[in-house]
Write a protein that binds this DNA or RNA. Structure first.
Lengths: 241, 241
DNA sequence: TTGTTATTTTGATCTAGGTCAAAACCGATG
DNA sequence: CATCGGTTTTGACCTAGATCAAAATAACAA
């Protein structure tokens, strides 16, 4: 099936795979190849697993629509949310090292993903240098993100963590063309707490405090950022002696 | 940015790059190519920076000998140790995403690294599939490690964190042919604390407690693990209701 | 709509780990 | 080998956030 570049771009962006496709000059043929790999879609119902820790790595998944979380599991049943993922994010990178997924990926709302068979991606990225580069950058970006989470968990106060969390969401929504100041949380207070290393009551309390102080407006899952600057100022203002 | 592996053999052992070379069949010519890339050595004095956050990515670095830490920096000067790295670990992976290093890498003792120009590695890994695979696995392994740290920081008690830390060191020493039960820490209590999201006094206290309980013997930086099993049992025994 | 369950808020209390302070220790350097 | 700055240990006390509990609210299925 012949495809013109313009259409392909549309297809790709409609697939929300700005992440995977676009960047840097792929020529006609390359785009076709990439498209073929990326085309299998798969819907995931809210609450369903995209994959589970321990299961075999077959594909990476790019989120087309929806919202997901990934959870690291501890032997004793404790679980820790390692990340929240939305349109355009690529999931499953952790599984490459051992060919087994090391965390669960669960849909927080009805979602759709593009399935990308990993072996095919690996082969393609040998033939298409710009794809290879892009893939490397994506893995590296995940590592950078992880370092940010470590910083957050290791040395920030509850208020700072939550401010950072809200600002991060805001930014990511903005980058996808949604409002940076009004959005609703797809996850529960408990899930936020798990991600931030805090308990759900603390999340609730800090959100309330933020509201009292006029930084945000909250009504259950609906968030409106009222004073972005003050929220930013909260981070990293820890008195250092 | 760190990563450790255990299998290696002759060819690259001189460079201690069991990490980068070996896995899966490289033929004669390929080995030579890889060796050429990996051959530039560079000594780093204790306390010196291998690279700094913000500096341009030129090379990745594999540690030949010595011990290093990487630190994420917060705007306000707070710093968080993101990892400790030893022989065979590969550093700099975080820099690929933006072509700038996102953390400092500092030698904790006189060390030597192999410098691996990233563009060359990228080119080579297109030509040598097994190298490509290995490189992907290394990046992925770093992500898995990061998830482990998140779990630790997000949901473990001080004792569990320190037990996990000691066991991890023990394991990594063992994988490199050193004693798994006796080693000395190259980092200060403060650096351990930063890594584990605790204060140095807490590290000191918990180490003392472990000694009282007969789990380990400590004399300043010298550690002897006396009861490995009990140490293991400490992790993940948190009463879950 | 109503009943049912999950989620959220808020208050009262508790505690793991932080903070402050001081002494002991260690290793490098002259 | 005495000295000096950087670690480490230990104690006394304090606080951010956890825990426990209960009410209020939202989500949802019948």
């Amino acid at each position: 099936m012949p495809v013109d570049v313009h259409k392909l771009k549309t297809v790709c962006s409609s697939c929300s795979l700005r992440e995977l496709c676009l960047p840097a000059g792929l020529d006609q043929r390359e785009l076709e190849q990439v498209e073929r790999v990326v085309n299998r879609r798969r819907p995931i119902k809210r609450g369903d697993y995209l994959y589970r820790a321990g299961s075999e790595l077959n594909s990476l998944y790019a989120i087309r629509t929806g919202f997901m979380k990934s959870c690291v599991l501890h032997d004793d049943g404790r679980e820790q949310v390692a990340g929240f993922h939305m349109m355009g994010d690529l999931l499953g990178l952790d599984a490459i090292s051992s060919n087994k997924h090391t965390c669960d990926a669960i849909a927080l709302e009805d979602s759709e993903v593009c399935e990308i068979p990993f072996v095919v991606l690996e082969r393609l990225s040998r033939d298409i240098p710009s794809l290879q580069q892009h893939f490397h950058r994506l893995m590296s970006r995940e590592i950078v993100r992880d370092y940010g989470v470590m910083l957050l968990l290791g040395s920030m106060l509850a208020e700072e963590r939550l401010a950072a969390f809200l600002l991060n969401l805001s930014q990511r929504f903005a980058a996808r063309g949604y409002s940076s100041t009004e959005f609703n949380l797809r996850m529960t207070r408990e899930e936020i707490g798990s991600y931030l290393g805090l308990k759900l009551e603390t999340i609730s309390r800090v959100l309330s405090r933020f509201q009292e102080e006029g930084l945000i407006e909250v009504q259950s899952k609906r968030i409106k950022i009222v004073n972005m600057g003050a929220l930013r100022a909260l981070i990293g203002q820890h008195d250092c002696h």
